[in-house]
């Protein structure tokens, strides 16, 4: 039996039982290593509550064996669907096969696995290269043909967000000779890394006079860079443009104060599109595409940053 026919029958069973009881959904989360991850958890809970699902949450504390155990327990509880944010890419075949045999659809959140895509319904995630591209596009549009020397704060050397966000940005500025990356160093995705590297950039580039913009691979480094720029006696947001990625609450505060210019959202709301796909699937067996890309929305100072901050500040970032 293929997974698809299995799923179709499940859908029929689900339909016939439909509405009689709340859908039970198991969610195996990686952990709470970052504010973004915490926000993802909060948003998933909120989405489930809105739609009247019974969400069973399990925190794996960064360990795959905990996630596998949680999925087996979800299967034993005979849940209606499983959300999985996998901590690593490999080693999922067996447990995903078990879920398929129990006819429970699995949706991957935020990260991918190396297993065959027959073994899960769909994956929801963002496109890291695209995020970098959106940031680059914004900068190209903003400087409107004037020369712009950019310094780049990279993420942790060798990590996939650092590589992809760098690539995306470079693609966006490739055809615009006026925009040029003059210095690029790692700030390790941390606020203090961003600050100390930015201090070095400012020293190296004529006290900051030769820098037109800073592109940070995440908002935390941008917040650190903003402090460094202020301490060097310059005005971030006007003397030096600041563009970054993630859209965490603190960057909106900086935007509201006019110190940051733009951020590209890596939405923690992965559950929303996942639930949409599930509902369509439950309703009439619609198979979603194997990858659902979340929107990489651009936020600037014109997009009510104070309001965005207020909306996000309690999500657990």
């Amino acid at each position: 039996m293929t997974y698809k026919t299995l799923l179709a029958t499940t859908a029929l069973v689900a339909l016939s039982a439909g509405g009689a009881h709340a859908q039970v959904i198991g969610f195996s989360q990686i952990g709470s290593e970052s504010g973004w991850r915490a926000a993802e958890t909060t948003l998933t809970r909120m989405q489930a509550e809105e739609r009247g699902y019974d969400l069973r949450f399990s925190d794996a504390q960064q360990r795959q064996e905990n996630q596998i155990a949680a999925i087996r327990s979800f299967i034993a509880q005979d849940v209606d669907a499983i959300l999985l944010a996998p901590v690593v890419a490999t080693g999922w075949d067996a447990v995903l096969q078990e879920a398929a045999e129990a006819e429970i659809p699995v949706i991957l959140l935020d990260r991918m696995v190396d297993s065959s895509d027959d073994l899960y319904l769909t994956a929801v995630g963002s496109d890291l290269v695209h995020e970098g591209y959106v940031a680059g596009e914004w900068l190209v549009d903003t400087v409107a043909g004037e020369d712009c020397r950019v310094v780049e704060l990279q993420g942790t050397t060798g990590s996939s967000p650092a590589i992809d966000r760098k690539n995306g940005f470079e693609q966006a500025i490739a055809d615009h000779a006026n925009v040029e990356i003059v210095r690029s160093q790692t700030g390790d995705f941390t606020r203090s890394g961003g600050k100390s590297v930015m201090e070095g950039f400012l020293q190296a580039e004529g006290g900051g006079a030769d820098i037109c913009a800073v592109y940070a691979h995440n908002d935390d480094m941008a917040v650190g860079a903003i402090q460094a720029i202020k301490e060097a006696g310059l005005n971030p947001g006007t003397d030096i443009l600041v563009v970054s990625i993630d859209a965490v609450p603190d960057i909106f505060l900086a935007m509201a104060a006019g110190e940051a210019n733009a951020t590209v959202e890596l939405t923690p709301n992965m559950a929303g599109p996942a639930f949409d796909a599930l509902e369509a699937y439950w309703a009439d067996g619609t198979m979603p595409p194997k990858f659902i890309q979340t929107e990489s929305a651009l936020y600037t100072q014109d997009d009510d940053p104070q309001g965005e901050y207020d909306r996000r500040k309690d999500l657990g970032y």
């Binding site: 970052s34 941390t190 606020r191 203090s192 890394g193 600050k195 917040v223 650190g224 402090q227 603190d250």
Partner: peptide, 16 residues
Amino acid sequence: VVTADIRGADANNAGL
């Protein structure tokens, strides 16, 4: 010093 420098306490990364 580390905390005051970035005006925030980053439990994951401070002093790593």
